[in-house]
């Protein structure tokens, strides 16, 4: 019995530091959420008033979901890592392995962020409750479907990020592309729901990846309907396929270059 307690303890110790790091990283997210709370409290002089179809509590939960979805992925490190794999030639070793590089990168990254994601979700819920004193009105099936949609959103984000990293096959430095990508999502997808943007822009955003990656899960949390869910789910499946195809396209093209040039 003693040895199992010992194993348990030493595992906790190794993870303790890791979890502590995650918690300190959340401070930045917390500060942003706090600012948004103040901002929306100011703008919603009456919290029950609707602006573009949202009340104040919904706006805060919206930002909590999009922030958690975005920050827990660690996309910057992932795109750097893939770029490095490409540039250092590490990727060539994977060519003759019996697995597909994209699948490998995706599952390995999903695995490495799972603990962080779980902690962020819990912290997000706590922060939301502290700020607002209530939870969104959801039943258990809704919660499961929201989580499913969140995981799909994260998967799409990871795949797009991998494809950006793989662009290093073709262009010298893919970091400006990554930068553009992250800016677009942050500015158009994280801060406001799509309904806040001008009417002309809205249809474009509705058909853009932002709808699947950011807006979708957040919208479901604050306003769950099965019609919304099916729309978002379909969009997510389509973007999953697009993102994956994009990865394969860049990868195949890159490998072809590699073979021609002999690495």
């Amino acid at each position: 019995m003693k040895k199992y307690i010992f194993i348990f303890k030493s595992e906790i110790m190794t993870n303790f530091q890791y979890i502590l790091n995650i918690l300190t990283h959340f401070i930045g997210t917390f500060i942003l959420l706090f600012i948004f709370l103040n901002l929306w409290q100011y703008i919603y002089s009456d919290p029950n008033k609707l602006i573009n179809g949202y009340n104040m509590n919904q706006m805060i939960w919206y930002v909590i979901v999009t922030e958690v979805l975005w920050t827990s992925v660690g996309a910057r490190q992932l795109s750097r890592k893939i770029s490095l794999d490409v540039k250092s030639g590490n990727i060539a070793y994977n060519l003759n392995k019996p697995y597909n590089y994209i699948g490998y990168s995706l599952s390995s990254h999903l695995g490495s962020i799972s603990v962080r994601l779980l902690i962020y979700i819990i912290l997000g819920i706590i922060v939301g409750y502290l700020f607002l004193g209530s939870f969104p009105n959801l039943n258990i099936i809704n919660i499961i479907l929201v989580l499913l949609s969140g995981i799909l959103a994260i998967t799409i984000n990871i795949l797009f990020t991998i494809s950006i990293g793989l662009l290093s096959f073709i262009i010298e430095d893919s970091s400006p592309i990554y930068w553009l990508y992250s800016k677009l999502i942050l500015v158009l997808g994280v801060i406001f729901p799509i309904e806040y943007f001008p009417k002309v822009v809205q249809p474009i955003l509705n058909y853009s990846p932002i709808y699947a990656m950011s807006y979708g899960p957040a919208k479901l949390l604050i306003d769950f309907t099965y019609i919304n869910f099916s729309k978002i789910f379909i969009s997510q499946i389509i973007y999953l396929i697009i993102a994956y195809s994009l990865c394969m396209l860049v990868y195949k093209k890159g490998v072809k270059n590699l073979n021609v040039n002999g690495g």
Partner: peptide, 24 residues
């Protein structure tokens, strides 16, 4: 890129000021 980065936040303010003429 730092200049562009800062400039991208203008979008946020344009949206916010479309809701209210005076913020804080």
């Amino acid at each position: 890129f730092m200049i562009l980065n800062n400039a991208s936040f203008l979008i946020q303010w344009i949206v916010l000021f479309s809701l209210k003429k005076n913020i804080g």
